[in-house]
Design a protein around this nucleic acid. Structure first.
Lengths: 344, 344
DNA sequence: TTGAAAGCGCTAACAT
DNA sequence: ATGTTAGCGCTTTCAA
């Protein structure tokens, strides 16, 4: 099976035809050019020998590698596995595969891994690392019209397609849920504002509060440097020190919400009774946390699936319009939210 | 940058040398064959033009694709992201990349994706799906001497290298911890016995119990069909119905432990006080569960890292001996274990 | 309908 | 130290 690779020439020889004929017979697209009987002979020979087309050699000729690259901050962030899984499944039918590259939010590393991906002649790129303002390397690729799709984020320049959840609506659901419970002093721990997710969620928080007739004091908002537990905890710590009267907090994502949990526990406050917490993403095990986290569900697997389809479309046709897909978000109520403590 | 790819010929032309000279100058391994000044000229030209070697074309010639494949059941199982991340990081320095393929524990799918991987001429294979008895396709690859490394699992035939945690010791730590707390009626919800992990953990459970002077009644053991919550819950349900007197359970992994949580909650029993539960893996958020899970920590990232090194070694040298690497496991005590209820 | 020939971008023998 | 040549496995003109 590996001793020596079975090549198209071997198949052609077996079938008693020229390699180019064998190629035509094996490729679905060109099969109609070949006599039916010949097709049969070739296919049988291929089968008998266990022939497997060499994707690379084919790519060298056709200028297609059947590979897309994906840039993401870190696969161990629970947000990404379902997205990646969706992408993989979406690419599979087209016999495409994805090569992942973790950037660890480091722009040097991003450049390096991007370089490696381009060295492999990827046919397209999926970005989960997009900032609102793309770095020069990405800008160049856009200019060069490399098929590209953003997941979970958008760029200010909307000439690149994206698939994300409806963050504006999601945050509104979160705020309305808390207001419905009777909360009025609601805080927001936002994410980095250089990302569209951070910006949109913050923006929607402010808007939704106003819409509910609540003042949004600037003290009620603090930003985490990054969408992780520790920066979330730091931000919420600052906020709570300044405004110990808040009864609820909307976190920009679930990991930041976990950071808020830590701060509350440290201050001997009970999550859900003393202070309500809402997260964002409904990540894996959000339902198993202590207490189970009320959060906004985003269809991550679907996001990945649609992103795969979009990038395949762009690879297929030379000119598709950029689209901004926004999949619906929904609220999942669990035990981390409850009536405000002064209503008890 | 993409308009037309910069090729080695372009670089050679710029530098006023023959393409093969340019190739030698650019490749570190052959650089010494070229005059220093020429090297400089070539490197400068390459830099100026933004040349990036074409990994595929190179692979076609050298019979190396700088790619390894990885078969895993499902990336969204929290066990895998840290392992994959370790593999990716371990391969990076060698400019290798990994292509993931999810099998969903379906042997048909495994064959299909394996076929796709082989079509890409992977230089090696990392298996996270190993059963104790490998399927024929894998057996063929072993016979063909495709560099291969197992992660987190081993095969009965030890001719393939593997990297895993020390399951035998890990389970022993779990049992001793429970015995130390005073438990005597300790159950085990095992994993599938066709996997080495399932088998070893069960085996070590029996051995460790005996070593502690406790009888291992056959009723105290039940197996989950698979390492996930639902099968774990079903198994523990059967067990508890038969033996409601157990005060502690050692689960074959954390997800099975979560299944046990569900069963206990359903029966109005409190995890950690009514029944103690120990998991295995210390997966992401095991510390944030309700209650935080006592479990055995396995260094997954390190497992991935070492696996990457091993497969690179095997790819590099034509004949390395198979090794079975076992990295140390340790117990992490949290709130899901406590004194037996009859000791309170 | 099939064959011949060329070439994708690169590297490795061989020749100079 | 460098150039020449050939070819990895495949597809795609162009001819027949």
């Amino acid at each position: 099976m590996l001793g020596r690779r079975v090549t198209l020439r071997d198949v052609a020889e077996q079938a008693g035809v020229h390699p180019s004929t064998a190629s035509r017979a094996i490729n679905e697209r060109t099969r109609s050019l070949v006599d039916d009987q010949t097709v049969d002979r070739v296919l049988q020979a291929a089968d008998r020998l266990g022939y497997r087309p060499d994707t690379l050699a084919r790519g060298l000729k056709t200028n297609r590698t059947f590979t897309v690259g994906m840039l993401l901050p870190d696969l161990t962030n629970p947000l990404f596995p379902p997205i990646v899984r969706g992408i993989e499944d979406g690419l599979e039918r087209a016999e495409y595969t994805v090569i992942l590259a973790n950037t660890d939010n480091d722009s040097d590393k991003e450049r390096t891994v991007l370089r490696a991906l381009l060295g492999r002649r990827i046919d397209g790129l999926i970005l989960a690392t997009a900032q609102r303002e793309p770095p020069p390397a990405i800008r160049e690729l856009i200019a060069a019209r490399l098929p590209m799709v953003l997941v979970n984020r958008t760029m200010d320049d909307q000439s690149v397609s994206s698939v994300s959840g409806d963050d504006r609506h999601g945050i509104r659901l979160a705020v309305e849920h808390l207001v419905g419970l009777g909360h009025t002093r609601i805080a927001h721990v936002g994410g980095p504002q250089r990302t569209s997710t951070g910006l949109t969620r913050h923006d929607s928080f402010v808007e939704s509060m106003s819409r509910c007739g609540l003042d949004v004091d600037a003290d009620l908002i603090e930003f985490a440097h990054w969408f992780r537990e520790a920066p979330g905890a730091e931000a919420f710590h600052r906020l709570l020190t300044r405004r110990p009267d808040v009864t609820a907090v909307v976190a920009a994502n679930d990991l930041i919400a976990l950071g808020c949990y830590d701060v509350l526990v440290e201050r001997d406050l009970t999550v859900g009774t003393d202070v309500s917490v809402v997260g964002y993403n409904d990540m894996l095990f959000a339902d198993k946390l202590c207490p189970p986290l009320t959060t906004v569900r985003v269809p991550h697997y679907q996001i990945g699936l649609r992103a795969a389809q979009l990038v395949l479309d762009e690879i297929g046709e030379r000119s598709t319009e950029a689209v901004q897909l926004r999949l619906p978000a929904s609220l999942v109520e669990r035990a981390s939210t409850g009536l405000p403590r002064d209503a008890r």
